[in-house]
Design a binder for these strands. Sequence first.
DNA 1: ATGACGCCGGAACGGCGA
Length: 258
Amino acid sequence: MNATPFTFASWNINSIRARAHHVQDWLERHPECDLLCLQEIKCEDSQFPAVFAETGLHVATSGQKAYNGVALIGRRPFTVTHHTLPGFEHPSARYIETEIDGITIGNLYLPNGNSGGEDGYATKLAFFDALAARARVLLDAEKPFAFIGDFNVCPTSEDLASTSLPPDDALIRPESRAAFRRLEWMGLTDALRALYPTGRYYTFWDYQAAAFHRNSGLRIDHALLSPRLTERLKSFEIDKDERAKEKASDHVPVLVTV
DNA sequence: ATGACGCCGGAACGGCGA
């Protein structure tokens, strides 16, 4: 087994151009983070702030205009294996995958599923189907891997403040939770719950109605680990302090160390 | 409480987010 710790993190940044300084500051305060997975960069590849590459970091993006978009920022060079999720044909930039230090990491931004009616919701389930198919491929190859990012699902009733969502919201619909559980049944492990089986942990607080002040949050940013990576799991942290900052994203960073 | 807040595009305010 690899004795050197490896730390990877996920952060839905809600526009990288609006919050590049937060990411820079955060990376300076977290030298242990080898790879940062960003979601909702909300810009095209060419608009991603140059400051990261200019300061010696390694950047890969799967961007698009105005909406969605994912990116990887690494301390060391890495290889991008996929810029889209195989089998997910919808033209939104929601997945980028790398292999680094022998670990495959899929950085994902799942559709919210509340807009676009039943078609919009079907797109969310279609992403889950493609993700399960990708998991099958990686499991069969016996790769140590992780899916990390904004899953836009609260897996159980313990993963949201009781008044934060209406009962038919796409983040808590039974089909959404079943799709998440299906990945667990395939053998993937919800890294936070492996270490903290019970208790309320949130990664998102709405901008509205003083949600952070009231701790009316959601746990929707997750890391699902393959069996071989789960054996190596050392810690899972939620950087809640980031939410209290001026001009914060509505999501906070989560860190996994193996 | 189809609202609040905050991003984007494009230069006002609708679309989208969760």
